[in-house]
């Protein structure tokens, strides 16, 4: 069974997303809504990681490095932020890319959970998928708000 690969992917991607939300929030703290919302959204991902732990104990997790296929797309997360209005926009966009990776991961995990009739995992995957949608919706909303000013007027 290859589910362990995806549990590892979910674990790592959520952790990366949580850390990246915190980096972006702290890095753009002069925009207080970004700071505080990113903290809240990081908390959601932290919670998913926490709830994944007992499931990982059951199935194990296997890093991609051990898998037959080499990983081609690396999602390393954001270690530092860019500056200025366009920098904020690009940082939010990077978070969105990370978020979609997380979301498709949970979609795949939910499919497997149904195949396995694992209700605990299915519930977590659906819950996490829903919260990832909230993260993505906020990123989308905030990018739409910031884009005209950042791209047209700001220096």
């Amino acid at each position: 069974m290859q589910l362990a690969i995806y549990l590892a992917l979910a674990h790592r991607a959520e952790q990366t997303l949580a850390d990246s939300f915190r980096v972006v929030g702290e890095g753009h703290a002069q925009q207080p809504d970004v700071l505080f919302t990113c903290r809240t959204l990081a908390g959601m991902s932290d919670d998913h990681v926490r709830r994944l732990a007992p499931i990982v104990r059951r199935y194990g997790e296997r890093d991609d490095a051990d898998a037959d296929e080499p990983e081609r797309l690396h999602a390393a997360g954001l270690a530092e932020v860019r500056s200025g209005p366009v920098g904020l926009l690009r940082d939010l966009q990077d978070l969105h890319v990370l978020g979609t990776l997380v979301q498709t991961t949970w979609t795949v995990v939910a499919q497997a959970a149904q195949g396995l009739r694992d209700r605990d995992l299915l519930e977590l995957a659906q819950h996490a998928n829903g919260e990832t949608s909230r993260q993505l919706s906020w990123l989308n909303t905030r990018m739409k708000q910031a884009a005209p000013q950042a791209l047209v007027v700001a220096e």
């Binding site: 959204l41 919706s137 989308n140 909303t141």
Partner: peptide
């Protein structure tokens, strides 16, 4: 909106 984050529906 999402009342927690302000994300638009």
């Amino acid at each position: 909106h999402d009342l927690l984050t302000g994300a638009s529906v």
